[in-house]
């Protein structure tokens, strides 16, 4: 096989050690990079061969888990989803995801993001609590109703949109594109009744109207979720709701099971761990 050509790339990595550093500092590494290596691969090699103290977060290495979001050449993106040689043939800067605190080196503290995510109640809420706890049948949903929110379910909570958002940069109470998109996703779900409960968070000041459609969340999203669209549609629904225009979406009815149907045994949900 033909020997792969290696290109020397200089990495400027922004590092921060909470024990010794007051401020992040830039450290330089030179690495021979060949075609096919993602930025995450390069950082792995640096850690293995040059500096074992470098801290970063990753898990799946294939753009599914959302752990490896970083600021690469000034743009927030997934390190495992970015080919190094596509970006540069000489220098690359890598830093922790902005608009979050840095725990260490390339590891941002995503807890505030998961906190607001939890506060938008990203699950089906129904007024008929009885039915929610002990379902007597299935909720019907047409493919058309599914399409209305399906795009926004592909979110992997990587935080890239939060880092790209200029409103997030100055307004710390702004819930951020990720949480707002999830609020819209559940509000629009035909099985859901919880729009009123989510309104407290999204419709107040520092809420969804802090967005002026810079569109960077949608430009940056590695999964094509298009948070900017969800946020605008969420605003539309809030305005309609306020003016009592448009139709109230009636919550999906339960379709009772056929009389001879057998229920599968209930699977107990694991206790909640996030944020507790």
């Amino acid at each position: 096989m033909e020997q792969m050509k290696k290109v020397p790339i200089t990495f400027y990595i922004r590092r921060f050690d909470p024990v010794t550093d007051e401020e992040p500092r830039i450290q330089k590494y030179v690495l021979q990079v060949e075609k096919g290596m993602t930025v995450l691969d390069c950082i792995h090699v640096i850690k293995e061969e040059q500096d074992p103290s470098l801290a970063f977060r990753f898990s799946c290495r294939m753009g599914v888990c959302g752990s490896c979001a970083m600021l690469i050449n000034g743009k927030p993106t997934l390190a495992c989803n970015t080919q190094t040689l596509d970006l540069t043939d000489s220098v690359l800067t890598v830093g922790a995801l902005p608009n979050f605190n840095i725990i260490r080196d390339l590891v941002p503290d995503l807890v505030p993001m998961f906190g607001v995510h939890q506060r938008v109640q990203p699950y089906i809420i129904r007024k008929d609590t009885q039915e929610m706890e002990k379902p007597s049948g299935e909720y019907f949903q047409s493919p058309h109703q599914l399409e209305e929110f399906l795009q926004f379910t592909y979110c992997i909570k990587c935080g890239v949109c939060m880092a790209a958002c200029p409103t997030m940069a100055t307004d710390r109470q702004y819930p951020g594109p990720m949480a707002l998109t999830q609020a819209y996703r559940y509000n629009t779900d035909s099985r859901d009744d919880g729009g009123g409960e989510r309104k407290d968070l999204v419709a107040k000041s520092h809420g969804v109207f802090g967005c002026h459609y810079a569109g960077e969340c949608s430009n940056a999203c590695p999964k094509g979720v298009d948070p900017a669209r969800a946020i605008q549609l969420l605003k539309r629904d809030l305005v309609r709701d306020y003016l009592h225009l448009g139709k109230d979406h009636a919550c999906a009815k339960t379709h009772p099971l056929p009389p001879n149907a057998e229920r599968k045994p209930k699977i107990e949900a694991p206790p909640f761990t996030a944020g507790t």
Binding site: P24, P76, L97, A163, M168, A169, T170, A214
Partner: peptide, 19 residues
């Protein structure tokens, strides 16, 4: 200790893909 990495007002300029 954590380092506050919020962009602040510079974030109006930096941090994105410049659409």
């Amino acid at each position: 200790k954590q380092f506050d990495n919020h962009f602040g007002i510079i974030g109006w300029l930096g941090g994105g893909r410049w659409g």
